[in-house]
Write a protein that binds this DNA or RNA. Structure first.
Length: 437
RNA sequence: CGGAGUGUGGCUCAGUCUGGUAGAGCACCGCGUUCGGGACGCGGGGGUCGCAGGUUCGAAUCCUGCCACUCCGACCA
């Protein structure tokens, strides 16, 4: 992409209504534009990041055996009356009436819809387990939206739903999602810690929040230090026994403020106790027959008798992650995107557009990076060098390849790694090799 | 939803108390000088001061109502 033809409206100063750093930087980098409280338009740069995150989530869901569907944003109120949640949900649910005076709602989640779909087709235990997911916009009319896209009213969420014949089978589905989540966040360059969460009315131990650690996180969290650096399991035998991998994490202490147990935390060796701020970027839980019973989602068991399926649901805040990643990865100059989610893989900065020498080298570098699949941004804008550096630092592109008249004169370019600030002066060929490595 | 606050050009803000022909910086346009970490000079464009009503000879400024947004708190991907 050539910057001169792109739409990347960066700001030198942050709008005053942004208080958290990710919100400020997203506005300054021209990623989003607020249209109403908690409702944002995604500008080209923001959309690129959002799509990359979405795609990682999708790939890891697929790998774990989940199957993608797309459910509507608008749902029929009657479906929610069946589950009993239409009245329970309260003002957070945006209710809509269509021209025929039918009650609709903008989905805050999709347990009812997926259960309706499932029950229409699946009749036998032999068709289980199944896990269906969708990545769709949700709306929750938060009393107080804030923190930019991290607590918007409209947000993009991946929600997966598992269907199993009994609790033991549901636990296996749960474990698959647990591992898939670890892999998902690891690919985005995040250290994530699964923490025991409030399981709600169902009880049991099958509810975890996935928390990334960031100084600006909105909740206080407590955990065993080893969890932070434990890493992700990667690809595993998804049909095998995942319980040991899960227990390796869940046996160490980790809890958010609401679930915190001082006594249990005190039992963690003192040098391993970590108290930090965290941001919730995922939540998984098992809810058993909560929806299948009232909505009559049953399958025939081996004995021929119908029984309600055991369900679980698994959410990832896709749009929230754009903000959360920035919270975890930025400096005074701006955003530092992990390579996997960066809007562009590299920026070629032509310090003097119009100069035959720099134009030629910059174009050559740009074409080579395209060929290498780095999806580069070519800064061919007519600005002074300082302004270019500042803007490219701000938007956080992982590699900068600087083509200036001095370098061209002696056959070199400069590359800079955004994350470390490390600069090297190399020939173009060497530079391309480093960036493409 | 309780409490607090803010709405003035794309962004940051002054002007409001004490009514008298709407300002600055950044951004934008033109020309020139510049050009390796957000340059400089000269010239220029852009705002019915959130909306509606009221008071007044005269309202960004005072009064009333409404709307939007933000912050703090209780709740949540």
């Amino acid at each position: 992409m050539r910057l001169s033809r792109y739409f990347m409206p960066t700001l030198r100063e942050a709008p005053s209504d942004a208080v958290v750093v990710s919100h400020q930087l997203m506005l300054r980098a021209g990623m989003i534009r607020q249209e109403a409280a908690g409702i944002y338009a995604w500008l080209p740069l923001g959309l690129r990041v959002l799509k990359k995150i979405e795609q990682i989530v999708r790939e890891e869901m697929d790998r774990a055996g989940a199957i993608e569907v797309l459910m509507p944003t608008l749902q029929l109120a009657d479906l929610w009356r069946e589950s009993g949640r239409y009245e329970d949900y309260g003002d957070e649910m945006l209710r809509i009436t269509d021209r025929h005076k039918r009650d609709l709602l903008y989905g805050p989640t999709a347990e009812e819809v997926i259960t309706e779909i499932f029950r229409a087709y699946v009749k036998s235990y032999k068709d289980l387990p199944k896990n269906l997911y969708n990545i769709q916009w949700k709306f929750r009319d938060e009393r107080r939206p804030r923190f930019g896209v991290m607590r918007g009213r409209e947000f993009l969420m991946k929600d997966a739903y598992s269907f199993d014949v009994d609790e033991a089978a549901a636990r296996k589905s749960y474990n698959r999602m647990f591992i898939a989540y670890l892999n998902t966040y690891a690919r985005m360059g995040l250290n994530v810690v699964p923490m025991k969460a409030d399981p709600g009315p169902i009880g049991g131990d099958l509810s975890h929040e996935f928390i990334i650690l960031a100084d600006t996180g909105e909740s206080q969290v407590f955990c065993h230090k080893d969890l932070v650096e434990m890493g992700a399991p990667g690809d595993v035998d998804w049909d095998g026994d995942l319980q040991p991998l899960v227990e390796q994490r869940t046996n160490l202490y980790a809890a958010t403020e609401e679930m915190h147990d001082e006594a249990a935390f005190a039992a963690v060796p003192e040098d391993k106790r970590l108290s930090a701020r965290g941001i919730e970027v995922g939540h998984i839980f098992y809810f058993g027959e909560k929806y299948s019973k009232p909505m009559k989602a049953t399958v025939a068991g081996p004995d021929g008798q119908d029984r309600p399926i055991h369900g679980g649901s698994y959410g990832v805040g896709v749009s929230r992650l754009t903000g959360a990643i920035i919270e975890a990865s930025h400096d005074e100059a701006g955003i530092i995107w992990p390579d996997a989610v960066a809007p562009f893989g590299a920026a070629v900065i032509n310090l003097r557009p119009g100069d035959a020498g720099t134009d030629e080298v910059a174009e050559k570098a740009y074409q080579a990076l395209i060929a290498a699949g780095k999806d580069p941004l070519l800064d061919d804008s007519d600005q002074r060098p300082g302004a270019k550096f500042a803007a490219i630092d701000l938007v956080g592109i992982p590699w900068q390849l600087v083509v200036g008249p001095k370098g061209v004169a002696d056959g070199t370019v400069e590359i800079k790694r955004r994350a470390t600030g490390e600069k090297q002066t190399l020939t173009l060929e060497e530079a391309l090799k480093v960036i493409s490595a």
